[in-house]
Design a binder for these strands. Structure first.
Lengths: 107, 107
DNA sequence: TTTATATATTGCAATATTACGATAATATTT
DNA sequence: AAATATTATCGTAATATTGCAATATATAAA
């Protein structure tokens, strides 16, 4: 089938899985690392830096935006993408909470 | 295409993305949570508990094993799956390291 | 040994993801 | 206004993932 049966799971479980999923592609990991390494949050240098087509990068950026990890603002004719630190921290906390509570009862 | 161009990325980036990807499905999140909630690491109660077909659960377990998150051992005619706590902690550390280093330089 | 139970694997259908070229949309420069 | 540059979206092809029924495998019980 190829369709995930999300209705079987809690909203929390689906959200958590969604975060993990969005982070689960090396291009998106690389994009986040690159954005953070530039003190300024300059943008589609990403196309050159990463080496995927512009359309592809744009798609990956869209997915990162979809979970609120990136803010984008118009900068002349370019877009300036920037990590949303507050959201970043929230997601990190949620993932850690998952890791900590899940590990604790194990044999 | 549908094929991820892993050769463009570092081994670390690919590994990190792989961990995220395996965790990026609600059934696998639920499986880990259920295994951890049972003090004993009893197993395919999972089929009943989660409500997916036996073949599907078995596949998800295989993916969790593939990144070393689960240990399985034969228990009579059943399998007893168990979170590999050492591996669990290692992965948690790697994810946190990614989160911390990536967040720190942002505007 | 036969039967029953639990898990893994195989094969398949349906949907999702990845990637890119082409094109549209937007803003800047001339 | 026209030309240029940057990003987003659309359409499409190739591959991956999800899920299940059917089957294989392995162990336990009768």
């Amino acid at each position: 089938m190829g369709i995930t049966k999300t209705q079987m799971f809690s909203e929390k479980q689906n959200d958590l899985a969604q975060f993990f999923k969005v982070l689960g592609h090396p291009a998106r990991v690389a994009i986040l690392q690159y954005i953070s390494n530039q003190n300024a949050c300059i943008c589609n240098d990403l196309v050159e830096e990463i080496g995927l087509a512009q359309a592809t990068i744009s798609q990956h950026l869209k997915e990162l935006k979809s979970i609120g990890l990136l803010n984008g603002e118009v900068e002349g004719k370019s877009m300036c993408y920037c990590i949303n630190v507050e959201r970043w921290t929230t997601i990190q906390d949620q993932l850690n909470s998952f890791f900590n509570t899940t590990k604790s009862n194990c044999c």
